[in-house]
Amino acid sequence: MSLIHHPTEVLKPEWVETIRAYAADAERSGKLHSEQLKLVYDQQWFNLLAPARYGGLQTNLPDLIKTEEALSWADGSLGWVVTLCCGAGWFGGFFDETIAAEIFSDKKVCLAGSGAATGTAEVSSDGYIINGNWKYASGVHHATHITVNCQIVNDGENLLTEDGGSLILPFVLDRADVELQSGWKYMGMIATGSDAYTVNNLFVNKNRCFKIDTEAAVVNTTIYRYPFLQLAEATLAANLSGMALHFIDLCEPAFANKATNVRRVNAKNIEAMYGALKDATTLLNEARLSFFKAIEVSWQQPEDQKILETVSSTSRMLAKVSRECVDELYPYCGLLAASPDTEINRVWRDIHTASQHALLTFLE
C-alpha cells in the first residue's frame, strides 16, 4: 500500500456501510450502536494494540495509523472510540501477566479511561485504596475495564518522584467497581459517550498498578517500546485526518446542491468552490504524506529522538491542516452543512470537538 491512500483501500465497503448506517442512531443514544459494536468485536478493533500473547492483534504502528484514520473517515465517533480504547489496550503490554491474561480472556474486552491524574491511591498493606473522579472517558459505556491515573499517598503524605514531582501511577480496574456519571455535553463526538466516572474507597491489589515506561514493558516487542507520547499524538492526528477526508468527500454533493442556486452562484463562483476543494485536498494529502513518512521511519528507529520529534511535529501539523481545510471549505457548503441533521454537519461538529484535545492544540 502506498503512503498516500484513501480509506477505501483499508476498509471493506460493507464495513463502511454498517458504520455509517447507524451513525445517526449512535449519536442520538450517546454511544456506539449495537450493530457498530458487533462489527468492532468481529474485527477485534478494540484489540488492535493488545498483546498477541493474550489474543490481541498487536498491530504494527504504520498499519494501526492507517486503520484508525480509515475508521474515523467512516465515522468520527466510532474511529475515536476505537482509537482511545485500543490505545488503552496497549497498556496490556505493561500489565502484570496474571491480570492481563484475566482481562484479555474476554472476547469483548474493551478498556477505557482518562489520562488526568484526578484520583488518589493510598498505600494499604499489599495494595492501595483508590478514590477519585475522572472526566472524558471515551467508550466507557462499552468498557469491561477502566484505567485511572492516581497520585500515590502514604500515611497522608503525597509521595514524590526523584525530581520532586508528585508520584503518579496508573491502575486498571474492573468496570463493576466504577460508577459512571453523565458528563459529555458537547456539540460533537456525541456517540463516543465520553462520560465521567467515580471510584470510592476501592481496595485493589498492588498488581493492578502498572508503569508506562519503555523499560517497564512486560511484553518486549517494538510496539510496547514505542514512546507513549508519539503514539498518542499520531493516533489522534490520524483521527482528525480521517474526519477531514470524510468532510472533503461530502463537499462534492454539497457543492452540487449549492450550484443549483442560480441567483447567487455563477460560473466564476463555481470555479472558485471547486478550486478551493482541489487546493484543500492537495494540502491535506501533502500533510498526510509527511506524517505517514515520519511514522514509517520511526517504526524502524523508535529510539531515535530526532525522528520521534518529527512524528510529533508532523502529527500536530496534520491536525492543524485538517482543521483548516475543513474551515476553508465549510462556507461553500451552504445551509446543508449547518443543519445538525445532516452527515456533513456531524463531521464538522466532530472534527471541531476532537481537535480541542490538548495534545493537538499547539505546534510546539
Rank of each mutant, 00 (worst) to 15 (best):
Pro7Asp: 01
Pro13Glu: 00
Trp15Met: 08
Val16Glu: 01
Thr18Trp: 00
Ala21Asp: 05
Ala26Trp: 07
Ser29Asn: 05
Ser34Met: 02
Glu35Arg: 04
Lys38Tyr: 02
Leu39Gly: 03
Leu39Tyr: 05
Trp45Gln: 01
Ala50Cys: 11
Gly55Phe: 01
Asn60Cys: 05
Asn60Ala: 03
Ile65Lys: 02
Ser72His: 13
Ala74Gln: 04
Gly76Phe: 07
Gly79Lys: 10
Val82Trp: 10
Gly89Ile: 04
Phe94Ser: 13
Phe95Ala: 06
Thr98Leu: 02
Ile99Leu: 15
Ala100Gly: 13
Lys107Ile: 01
Lys108Ala: 02
Ala116Met: 09
Glu122Ala: 00
Asp126Glu: 04
Tyr136Lys: 09
Ala137Asn: 12
Val140Met: 03
Val140Gln: 06
Ala143Ile: 08
His145Pro: 07
His145Ala: 04
Thr147Ala: 08
Thr147Glu: 10
Val153Asn: 08
Gly156Glu: 04
Asn158Arg: 12
Gly164Asp: 13
Val172Lys: 01
Glu179Thr: 01
Lys185His: 12
Met187Phe: 09
Gly188Pro: 11
Val199Trp: 03
Asn201Ser: 14
Phe203Ile: 05
Asn205Arg: 11
Cys209Pro: 04
Ile212Cys: 11
Glu215Ile: 01
Thr222Ala: 14
Thr222Ile: 10
Thr222His: 07
Ile223Thr: 10
Leu231Met: 11
Glu233Leu: 15
Leu236Lys: 11
Leu240Gly: 01
His246Pro: 00
Ile248Glu: 05
Asp249Tyr: 03
Cys251Val: 06
Glu252Leu: 06
Pro253Cys: 10
Ala256Met: 11
Asn261Tyr: 14
Arg264Lys: 14
Arg264Val: 15
Val265Gly: 13
Ile270Asp: 14
Ala276Ser: 11
Lys278Asn: 04
Leu284Ala: 03
Leu284His: 10
Glu286Arg: 07
Arg288Ser: 07
Leu289Ser: 12
Phe292Lys: 00
Glu296Val: 04
Val297Arg: 00
Ser298Tyr: 06
Gln301Phe: 06
Gln301Pro: 01
Glu303Cys: 00
Gln305Val: 12
Met317Arg: 11
Arg323Ser: 05
Arg323Leu: 07
Glu324Val: 03
Cys325His: 00
Asp327Thr: 09
Tyr330Trp: 06
Cys333Thr: 12
Gly334Asn: 05
Ala338Phe: 11
Ile344Gly: 08
Asn345Arg: 10
Val347Thr: 07
Asp350Trp: 02
Asp350Val: 05
Gln356Gly: 08
Gln356Leu: 13
Leu359Gln: 09
Glu364Val: 12
